[in-house]
Amino acid sequence: TTVHLNGVTYTFPNPEEARKFVEKLAKTLNLKVEVHNGTYHIE
């Protein structure tokens, strides 16, 4: 599972880890999250 954040790409072997990371980040920084083909894009 891949996460794109400010031009940096993070790869998680575990989709659940990626989801938790994204949710925590989005909540902390009040960001918008979009998912395209299983890839998270955070703005």
Score class of each variant (00 low, 15 high):
1 T>P: 06
1 T>A: 10
1 T>H: 07
1 T>G: 10
1 T>D: 05
1 T>R: 12
1 T>L: 07
1 T>F: 06
1 T>E: 04
2 T>F: 13
2 T>K: 14
2 T>C: 15
2 T>Y: 13
2 T>H: 14
2 T>G: 07
2 T>A: 12
2 T>P: 07
2 T>R: 14
3 V>N: 00
3 V>G: 00
3 V>C: 09
3 V>L: 05
3 V>D: 00
3 V>Q: 00
3 V>A: 03
3 V>P: 00
3 V>H: 01
3 V>F: 04
3 V>R: 00
4 H>N: 10
4 H>L: 13
4 H>D: 05
4 H>A: 07
4 H>M: 13
4 H>E: 07
4 H>Y: 14
4 H>I: 15
4 H>V: 14
4 H>Q: 09
4 H>P: 01
4 H>W: 14
4 H>G: 02
5 L>H: 07
5 L>A: 04
5 L>E: 02
5 L>G: 02
5 L>D: 02
5 L>I: 12
5 L>P: 00
5 L>M: 12
6 N>R: 10
6 N>D: 09
6 N>F: 15
6 N>V: 06
6 N>H: 09
6 N>E: 07
7 G>I: 04
7 G>Y: 06
7 G>F: 07
7 G>C: 15
7 G>Q: 06
7 G>M: 06
7 G>H: 08
7 G>W: 07
7 G>T: 05
8 V>W: 13
8 V>G: 04
8 V>S: 08
8 V>H: 10
8 V>D: 06
8 V>T: 09
8 V>P: 00
8 V>L: 10
9 T>I: 14
9 T>V: 14
9 T>W: 10
9 T>F: 10
9 T>G: 05
9 T>A: 11
9 T>Y: 11
9 T>E: 09
9 T>N: 06
9 T>K: 13
10 Y>R: 04
10 Y>C: 14
10 Y>E: 01
10 Y>V: 05
10 Y>P: 00
10 Y>S: 01
10 Y>Q: 01
10 Y>W: 11
10 Y>H: 05
10 Y>F: 12
11 T>C: 15
11 T>N: 09
11 T>P: 04
11 T>I: 12
11 T>A: 09
11 T>M: 11
11 T>E: 08
11 T>W: 10
11 T>L: 11
12 F>P: 00
12 F>K: 00
12 F>Y: 03
12 F>G: 00
12 F>D: 00
12 F>H: 00
12 F>T: 00
12 F>S: 00
12 F>C: 13
13 P>I: 11
13 P>M: 11
13 P>K: 12
13 P>L: 10
13 P>Q: 10
13 P>C: 15
13 P>V: 10
13 P>Y: 08
13 P>A: 12
13 P>N: 11
13 P>R: 13
13 P>F: 09
14 N>R: 06
14 N>S: 11
14 N>Q: 05
14 N>I: 05
14 N>H: 07
14 N>V: 05
14 N>E: 05
14 N>K: 05
15 P>M: 10
15 P>H: 11
15 P>T: 08
15 P>A: 12
15 P>K: 08
15 P>D: 12
15 P>E: 09
15 P>Q: 10
16 E>C: 15
16 E>Y: 11
16 E>S: 09
16 E>N: 09
16 E>G: 08
16 E>P: 04
16 E>D: 11
16 E>R: 09
16 E>M: 11
16 E>I: 10
16 E>T: 10
17 E>Q: 12
17 E>H: 09
17 E>R: 11
17 E>V: 11
17 E>Y: 10
17 E>L: 14
17 E>M: 14
17 E>P: 01
18 A>T: 05
18 A>S: 02
18 A>Y: 02
18 A>I: 03
18 A>P: 00
18 A>R: 02
18 A>V: 06
18 A>K: 01
18 A>G: 03
18 A>E: 00
19 R>K: 09
19 R>S: 05
19 R>E: 06
19 R>H: 06
19 R>D: 04
19 R>W: 12
19 R>F: 08
19 R>L: 10
19 R>Q: 07
19 R>N: 04
19 R>I: 08
20 K>T: 09
20 K>I: 10
20 K>P: 00
20 K>N: 08
20 K>S: 09
20 K>D: 07
20 K>E: 09
20 K>C: 15
20 K>Q: 10
20 K>V: 09
20 K>L: 11
20 K>A: 11
21 F>V: 01
21 F>A: 02
21 F>H: 01
21 F>L: 03
21 F>M: 03
21 F>W: 13
21 F>E: 01
22 V>T: 02
22 V>M: 04
22 V>I: 12
22 V>H: 01
22 V>P: 00
22 V>Y: 03
22 V>R: 01
22 V>N: 00
22 V>D: 00
23 E>G: 04
23 E>W: 09
23 E>Y: 12
23 E>A: 09
23 E>F: 11
23 E>S: 06
23 E>H: 07
23 E>T: 08
23 E>R: 08
24 K>N: 12
24 K>S: 11
24 K>G: 08
24 K>M: 14
24 K>P: 02
24 K>T: 12
24 K>A: 13
24 K>L: 13
25 L>C: 13
25 L>I: 09
25 L>M: 06
25 L>V: 06
25 L>H: 02
25 L>E: 02
25 L>T: 03
25 L>Y: 04
26 A>W: 05
26 A>D: 05
26 A>I: 12
26 A>F: 06
26 A>H: 05
27 K>H: 09
27 K>L: 14
27 K>W: 09
27 K>Y: 10
27 K>S: 09
27 K>Q: 12
27 K>M: 13
27 K>A: 12
27 K>T: 08
27 K>R: 10
27 K>F: 12
27 K>V: 07
27 K>D: 06
28 T>R: 14
28 T>S: 08
28 T>E: 13
28 T>I: 13
28 T>H: 13
28 T>F: 14
28 T>M: 12
28 T>D: 11
28 T>N: 11
28 T>K: 11
29 L>P: 06
29 L>D: 05
29 L>Q: 07
29 L>I: 06
29 L>F: 10
29 L>E: 06
29 L>N: 07
29 L>K: 05
29 L>S: 06
29 L>H: 14
29 L>T: 06
30 N>W: 05
30 N>V: 07
30 N>Q: 09
30 N>L: 07
30 N>D: 07
30 N>K: 08
30 N>F: 07
30 N>E: 06
30 N>T: 05
30 N>I: 07
31 L>M: 08
31 L>F: 07
31 L>C: 14
31 L>S: 03
31 L>K: 02
31 L>H: 03
31 L>T: 04
31 L>P: 01
31 L>W: 05
31 L>G: 04
31 L>N: 01
32 K>T: 07
32 K>M: 05
32 K>N: 05
32 K>Y: 05
32 K>D: 02
32 K>E: 03
32 K>I: 09
32 K>P: 03
32 K>A: 04
32 K>Q: 05
33 V>G: 01
33 V>I: 14
33 V>L: 05
33 V>E: 01
33 V>S: 01
33 V>W: 13
33 V>H: 01
33 V>D: 01
33 V>K: 00
33 V>F: 13
33 V>N: 01
33 V>R: 00
33 V>C: 14
34 E>C: 15
34 E>L: 10
34 E>P: 01
34 E>D: 05
34 E>A: 08
34 E>K: 09
34 E>F: 14
34 E>Y: 15
34 E>G: 04
34 E>N: 08
35 V>K: 04
35 V>S: 03
35 V>Q: 04
35 V>I: 13
35 V>M: 12
35 V>N: 05
35 V>G: 01
35 V>P: 01
35 V>H: 04
36 H>S: 06
36 H>Q: 07
36 H>R: 14
36 H>D: 04
36 H>Y: 10
36 H>T: 06
36 H>E: 05
36 H>V: 14
37 N>A: 04
37 N>Y: 04
37 N>S: 04
37 N>Q: 05
37 N>H: 05
37 N>I: 02
37 N>G: 06
37 N>P: 02
38 G>Y: 03
38 G>R: 01
38 G>P: 01
38 G>K: 02
38 G>Q: 03
38 G>I: 02
38 G>N: 05
38 G>E: 03
38 G>F: 04
38 G>W: 03
38 G>S: 03
38 G>L: 03
39 T>G: 10
39 T>D: 14
39 T>A: 14
39 T>N: 15
39 T>Y: 06
39 T>Q: 14
39 T>S: 14
39 T>I: 14
39 T>F: 06
39 T>W: 06
39 T>M: 12
39 T>L: 04
39 T>H: 15
40 Y>I: 13
40 Y>A: 03
40 Y>V: 07
40 Y>T: 04
40 Y>E: 02
40 Y>R: 01
40 Y>K: 02
40 Y>S: 03
41 H>S: 04
41 H>T: 07
41 H>I: 14
41 H>Q: 05
41 H>P: 02
41 H>W: 15
41 H>D: 04
41 H>E: 06
42 I>G: 03
42 I>M: 06
42 I>F: 08
42 I>N: 02
42 I>E: 03
42 I>D: 02
42 I>L: 14
43 E>D: 07
43 E>L: 14
43 E>Y: 15
43 E>V: 15
43 E>T: 15
43 E>S: 14
43 E>R: 10
43 E>F: 15
43 E>G: 08
